[in-house]
């Protein structure tokens, strides 16, 4: 896969790739086709043929914009980091729900909300999407806006409104893995 040219890609500019020749739409094609086959749960001729045609048309038409998985680092280190990321994420998700459950069952409802600003060093759009989603599902935080390198996070029980401290508290745990996955 020719991914070196994607490294310096900003969040807005689409990669200069055309149609099926680039690695981007090949990965999109593989993702769509896999999803289609799993959804049908069969390997009959009709399923495979219609899947090939539809996935081919979609990845040829939208390969430049729907860049799902495009910047993913397929080396063993990237895949290993992805598993670590999923494990850490599931742990945080359970923690988030337990703390939320404890919060809503207390009659006094002890919350101290604020919208804080944090910084991310990630540049790949999918990595940023995963970071924002992961933050939303972890204890007491919700991504409200993403602008350049800054994320604006709504925090139910605010620990710190300082940029660096909040970044350390909210972002650092996930960024560690995402940097390897989309490095």
């Amino acid at each position: 896969m020719s991914d070196t040219h994607l490294a310096d890609k900003g969040q807005t500019a689409p990669p200069p790739l055309d149609g099926l020749s680039g690695g981007v739409s090949l990965r999109l094609f593989a993702t769509l086709f896999l999803f289609w086959v799993l959804l049908n749960a069969s390997l009959s001729f009709a399923t495979i043929l219609s899947g090939l045609v539809v996935a081919g048309v979609i990845s040829a038409a939208f390969g430049r914009h729907l860049s799902f998985l495009s910047g993913f680092n397929l080396a063993p280190a990237g895949i290993f980091a992805a598993f670590q990321f999923i494990g850490y994420f599931l742990k945080e998700l359970v923690k988030a729900n337990l703390s939320l459950a404890a919060l809503v069952m207390k009659p006094s409802l002890p919350i101290s909300p604020a919208i804080v600003k944090v910084r991310t060093t990630l540049t790949d759009p999918v990595a940023r999407l995963l970071l924002a989603n992961a933050i939303t599902l972890t204890p007491g935080t919700l991504t409200c806006e993403i602008k350049g390198e800054f994320l604006y996070i709504h925090w139910v029980v605010t620990k710190s409104t300082d940029l660096d401290e909040a970044t350390q508290e909210i972002v650092a745990g996930f960024e560690r893995y995402l940097e390897v996955m989309y490095g």
Binding site: L100, V104, M105, I111, H154, V156
Partner: peptide, 22 residues
């Protein structure tokens, strides 16, 4: 529990938080 949070939380952002995680 998420539904309870949806009812009890004081403003829309906290309600979204309770709703989405649970």
């Amino acid at each position: 529990l998420g539904g309870l949070g949806l009812v009890r939380m004081p403003d829309v952002y906290n309600r979204i938080q309770a709703g989405t995680k649970a």
